[in-house]
């Protein structure tokens, strides 16, 4: 029983060991302790989706996860998807379809969509919109984001 502990986890392929307060949120750990400020923080109660990361391969709200819970886990953040001049597929599709304006919501969308493409059937626009419904964007009106996901889902395999 501790209010502080040392955790070891893999973030974007690198092993990290840090001492953390038990009450430190994973979102704040990523941003403040590891300097990975690509993960954004909007509402801190699970509603906006800006802080979405992948925890052991599935999307999770980093604002609703304690860093200490991620001990031993594999975390992927937006920084792991690609870099300037070498964008990942999802990032490139957002760029091609103008899927962002201010970009605040974008990291969360990119991580949610990565989970969607890996695990969920996305055969219709309705399915795409449903899967995106946990992420809020105040700028785009979503249509260009749906366009980007539709193209990614097509490239993934034939639509039935």
């Amino acid at each position: 029983m501790e209010d502080r502990a040392t955790i070891t986890l893999t973030v974007n392929g690198l092993t990290q060991t840090r001492a953390v307060d038990a009450r430190l949120l994973l979102s704040d750990f990523l941003r403040h302790d590891l300097g990975l400020t690509g993960t954004h923080v909007g509402c801190e109660h699970g509603v906006c989706g800006a802080c979405t990361i992948l925890l052991d391969g599935r999307s999770a709200r980093s604002c609703l996860t304690l860093a200490i819970q991620a001990d031993g886990a594999t975390i992927e953040t937006v920084e792991g998807l690609g870099r300037m001049g070498d964008l990942g597929r999802v990032q490139q599709a957002f760029r091609d379809h103008h899927g962002l304006q201010c970009g605040f919501c974008t990291p969360g969308f990119l991580m949610t969509i990565t989970d969607m493409l890996r695990h969920h059937p996305l055969e219709t626009d309705d399915q795409i919109r449903e899967a995106l419904s946990g992420n809020i964007c105040r700028c785009t009106g979503y249509q260009h984001i749906v366009d980007a996901v539709r193209e990614l889902a097509r490239a993934r395999g034939p639509l039935t």
């Binding site: 029983m1 501790e2 209010d3 502990a5 307060d21 038990a22 009450r23 430190l24 949120l25 704040d28 801190e44 304690l66 200490i68």
Partner: peptide, 24 residues
């Protein structure tokens, strides 16, 4: 820090979890 300070118990079993709850 957003949440108030607490002690964290990673329960290994149901018995461990309810002992920790009782201890709180």
């Amino acid at each position: 820090m957003k949440p108030a300070r607490f002690d964290y118990v990673r329960a290994e079993s149901i018995a461990h979890a309810v002992e920790a709850l009782a201890g709180a």
